[in-house]
Design a protein around this nucleic acid. Sequence first.
DNA 1: TCAGATTAGTGAACACCGTTAACGCAAGGA
DNA 2: TCCTTGCGTTAACGGTGTTCACTAATCTGA
Lengths: 221, 221
Amino acid sequence: MSDRSQRRRDLTRQEIKQTARNQLVTGGPNAISLRAIARDMGITAPALYRYYPALDSLILELCTDLYTDLRVACEVVRDQVAPEDHEGRLLVMVREFRRWVLSHPAESTVIFGPPLPGVDQFHQQCQDLSHAGVQFGQIFIDPMLALYHQGRLPVGKAIVDAHDHAHGDVPPEVYTYFLLKWTQFYGIIMAEAFGHLSWAVADAEPLFEAEVTAFTESLIR
Amino acid sequence: MSDRSQRRRDLTRQEIKQTARNQLVTGGPNAISLRAIARDMGITAPALYRYYPALDSLILELCTDLYTDLRVACEVVRDQVAPEDHEGRLLVMVREFRRWVLSHPAESTVIFGPPLPGVDQFHQQCQDLSHAGVQFGQIFIDPMLALYHQGRLPVGKAIVDAHDHAHGDVPPEVYTYFLLKWTQFYGIIMAEAFGHLSWAVADAEPLFEAEVTAFTESLIR
DNA sequence: TCAGATTAGTGAACACCGTTAACGCAAGGA
DNA sequence: TCCTTGCGTTAACGGTGTTCACTAATCTGA
């Protein structure tokens, strides 16, 4: 295959994913359909099989894009804070995390919700740092690690070990602390995004800010 | 309609829901299909429309059943602990919560995951105590309230108010504390159940127990 | 007991869906 | 120039939710 046609091929794959994402945004995860994608692109459905072997693999690749988008969004706000202000960098990233999720409910459903068919494989391929999901976690681990080296992280006992996994060079007590905080923020953000707080409060932002405050106040100064 | 045929009708509705749940368990949320339900029941698909106006409303009613099942499971283990041991009652319920979710992944996806079509309405009908989701929350609020009256709950500022919602008689600072703890446990349990910790740890139970320990140690004794 | 109304269930049909197969066409390289 | 490769087509299979017209059974009330 020539270089020219290869580039054209990649461009079409990009367009397919973009069309799929538009349908994801407008109609939710169930609205992603090969036939609708083909319709929007002005071609027929079987033509898409020249680019993806099945719908699942399309969604799988879409997952990577979404994770990357979210990570880049967090990195953008992070880089507006002084590099030595690790606490401040963490805060703006966590807030951007919530903001992105709430403003991208459909995309969040795909990457943070229960494993859809095809997405379940996604989470099982996270054994190296190149994985988009792991990279997203990494941008939160980095400042935590810096705070740890400054003696500001109130780490507890090392309960889980990261040596066998992607983040091999992170001290186990830091990794444990990270995962605990991670699941807490995951919980309050996803509970709100998935509508599981609507019966309790009209606006979940004060709750989220309380969680953020609890984190900052737990830091050793 | 006579009493006899009404009972027969309810029985059929029950059978429909049970068949749907079997398919949910074996094939995941996407495997619930009217035609498959009808096939399993030995009837044709349009016959189901005599009992439910659409598939969505079937799933909606299934949600209530699942929430009730989970609540009953928690109440069972709760009632094996002395009534005055509110801390112990909370602990066994939280552990049972996780156990139930991990052993019922498909059902948990439906009631704790992102709103499926038809389920989104479910969470918007939670304005009274009779709602199954609210009742599930209530069994956790009760012992927390008891601990509060004993002066053992390390409540912070009252950030959210429950007066306008279902749990009207709960002090706002208790309600705030409950929601914060609730989202934390929701986070660590659902992150594990949805596979979002598989890249980090092989077994998430130590993390969960660390969260539980952090809760008990935060209680005033 | 018997006519009428209500109910459960059926089969056909419509409009979708993912996916496969066989085929045509146009461009690229030898 | 030939011919291989890749892109796109149409047709088809089996699946889905849902609606409609119709039948058969059952229940109701006089």
